[in-house]
Nucleic acid binder design. Structure first.
Lengths: 199, 199, 199, 199
DNA sequence: CATGAATGAGGGTTCATTCAT
DNA sequence: CATGAATGAACCCTCATTCAT
C-alpha cells in the first residue's frame, strides 16, 4: 500500500481544493495538477482517469481521518472522555464544510459519482465498515465499562451514538449558528443524550 | 408563484430521472426534455440554464414533500402520533435513495453545485428554514402538550428531535440492513430516545 | 441508403482534403468541418467518430467512381473500346495521386486503420467485390465477343486484365515520367499486352 | 553508412511490430523502445523523431530485402530461372501482409507520412530507383540472352515485367484465395504472360 | 410559442519529446 | 551514454446554448 510522493501531492491538491470550497464535480484536472505543482500529463502516469484521482484522494483523506480518530480514542480509558474526544475531533478536524460533507456522504453512501466508479468504491473495502467498527468498539467498551446498558442491541446502541455525533457535526456545519447555544452547552446536551439513551 | 405546465413537466422529468437513480451531476438537458416530452429549445423559454431547471426542480420537489408532511402533522393532536407519522412518512416518501439524498443534502446545506448558483439557492428563501419551522412547531406543540420539558432550549430540542429522524432515514438508506432489527423495533427505540432526551 | 446533405458535405470535404495531398492519418476533425463549412460539433450529429467520417467518405468516393466506370463501360459494345475507356477513365478520374492510392489500397485490402474499424469495412459489403464483379463482367464479355480465349480460367483472365490496368495507374502515379514514353505508346503497349495474354 | 547496434535494435523492433500486424500509424515510441529493450530516451540519442525511426527502419528493411533478391538473382544465369526466383522470393519473403504492404507502397510512392518527412524520403536515394535498377538489369539480361525482344522500349519492358510480379504479390495478398488456382498454375500463367508480352 | 439542427467553448486524455540523474 | 519521469501541446468529443424556421 506504498503510495508515491506524486500521488500524495495530487491527493493533497484535491483535498486542498475541496477545503477551499471548490465543487467536487467541477474540478478540472488542470486545477488539481496546478495546485499540486506538477504537469497535467504527469497525473496520468499515476492514475488512469480524473475520477480515479478524486475518488482515491477522498479515500486517502478519510482513511487518514479515521486513523487519527482511532489513535485518539485509544488514549482514553473511559467512555465519557472518549465521547468528548470525538467532539473535540469534530471541532478541529471535521469542522470544514467540505471534508465533513465527504465523510458524511461516505457514512450514508450518498456519493454521487459516475456509476462506473461505484465499483471502485466497493473494491475499497468500505470505510463505512471501518466507521462501523469504530462505533462497535466504542459501544462495546461502554458496555464493558458498565456505563451502557447491556440489554440494548448493538445496532441500536451504535445508532444512538452516531445520531448525537452527527448532530454535533450538523451544529458546526450550519451556516449561521445564530441562536445562542455555545459549543459547551451543545456538547453537554449531546453527552447527556447519549447517556439517557444508552446509560 | 404560478407555475406553467411546461415548467411542471420539466420539474417532474428531473425528479423522475433522479428517482431512477441518474446522477444529478451527469443529467443532460436533452435527457430532461426528452423525459418531459418537449423540445430541447423549449426548456430555454422557461429557464435560463440547465442548473436553474435542476435547482428549481429540486426545490419544487422538496416543497411538495414539506407540504405533505405539514398536512400530515396537522392531522394528529399529540406528539407521539406525530412522531410516528414522521416515521411513516419516511417509510413511504423518503425511502427512495435519491429523493432522500436530495432532501438530506438540503437539510445540511451540502449541495454541491457551481458556486454561481449558490446565490440562487439563497434567493429561494431556504427550505432549510421551512424544515426548521416544522421542527419548531413540532417541539412547541410537544412543550404545550407537556410531554417535552420546557426548560430545554428550543435549539437543543430541535437538534434532539432531528437526530432521531435522521437515524431513521439512515436506517432505511443503508444498503444492507443485515443485522436483525425490525422496522418496529427501530421506531420504538427512536421514539423512546426522543422521550428520554426531551421528556 | 439516403444520405443527408451534411453527410455529403463532410464526405466531399474529406475527399477534397485527400486530393489536396493531406495525409489521411493526420486529418483533424476541424480540418474536415472547416472545409465542409460547418461547425465542428455538427459532424458528431451525423457520425460517431472521426474514423467513421473518414471511412465512410472513402467508401462513398470509391462507390461513386465505381458507378462511373460502370456507366462508362455500358456505353461500349466491344472489348477494345472498353479497355480504352478504362484507360481514359484512369487518365481523367484516377489520375490524382491520392484517390488512386485509396482505390488501390482497397483493391488489395491494405487499408491501415484502427482494428476497431475493420469491422465497419467488413459490414460495407466490400467494394473489392464490386471491382471484382466489374472485372468479371469485362472478361465474360470479352469471351462472349470471342476476343478472349475461353479456356483460360476466369481468375487468371481477371488477373491479367488487372495487371495492365494497374500498370497504367502506376504510369500516371510515377513522380517523374522522365523516360520518353508517351501516353499513347503506353496505352497501345498495355492493350497489346492484354490481347497477347488473353487473346 | 555504419549503423550502430542500438539503431539496428530499433529498426528490428519496428519491423517486428509491423509484422505483428500493428498499424504503422499508431506505433508509439514506447512500443518501439520496449520491443527493442532499450529506454525511451535512448531512441532520441540516435534519431531526432519518431518518424525518422520508422522511416529509416522501413528503408533498412526494404534495403535488406532488395539485397537479398539481388544476391538471389545473381545465382541464376537465365531469365526463366530468374523469374521463378522472384516468384519464390515473393512466396517466402514478401508473403506477409505487412512487409509486403510496405514494400508495395514504396514501389508506387504511396507512403502516407507527414509531408515534412517526404523530403527525408527524397534524401534517401530512393529505393524506388534501386527497384528500378533491378528491373533494368533483369530486362537487359533478358535481351542479352535473346529471350526478350530488343525493339521494345526498356521502360515498357520493365512495366510488363513488374505488372506480373505485382500480380503474384496481389495473389498472395488476397484474403481468400477461394477460387481454385494453385500457386503453380498462377506462376506458370504469369511466366507465360511475361514471355508473351516481351518474348 | 415550439423546435431541434447547428454550434464551439471547454476539458479529458494521449504521447512525442526533453532533461536531470 | 542511458534512462524514464515529467511535461504540455494537441486533438477528439461532449453538450449547454442559440436561433432560424
Amino acid at each position: 500500500m506504498e503510495v508515491s510522493a506524486k500521488k500524495i501531492a495530487l491527493f493533497d491538491a484535491v483535498i486542498a481544493l475541496i477545503e477551499d470550497g471548490v465543487d467536487i464535480n467541477t474540478l478540472k484536472v488542470s486545477d488539481i495538477t496546478n495546485r499540486a505543482g506538477i504537469g497535467k500529463g504527469t497525473a496520468y502516469e499515476y492514475f488512469r482517469s480524473k475520477e480515479e484521482i478524486i475518488i482515491q484522494a477522498l479515500f486517502y483523506d478519510v482513511g487518514q481521518r479515521i486513523e487519527k480518530i482511532r489513535r485518539l480514542l485509544r488514549q482514553y480509558t473511559n467512555t465519557k472522555d472518549r465521547i468528548h474526544a470525538v467532539f473535540q475531533w469534530i471541532e478541529t478536524d471535521a469542522r470544514q464544510k467540505s471534508s465533513f460533507t465527504q465523510l458524511f456522504r461516505m457514512a450514508n453512501g450518498s456519493f454521487e459519482f459516475s456509476n462506473s466508479l461505484k465499483e471502485e468504491m466497493a473494491r475499497q473495502e468500505g470505510y463505512c465498515k471501518e466507521i462501523n467498527d469504530i462505533l462497535t468498539a466504542f459501544v462495546e467498551a461502554g458496555v464493558a465499562e458498565g456505563v451502557f446498558r447491556r440489554e440494548i442491541s448493538p445496532v441500536l446502541q451504535r445508532t444512538a451514538l452516531l445520531s448525537q455525533i452527527m448532530s454535533f457535526m450538523i451544529y458546526f456545519h450550519q451556516e449561521d449558528i445564530s441562536e445562542a447555544v455555545t459549543v459547551e452547552e451543545m456538547k453537554d446536551f449531546l453527552y447527556e443524550n447519549i447517556m439517557r439513551m444508552l446509560g
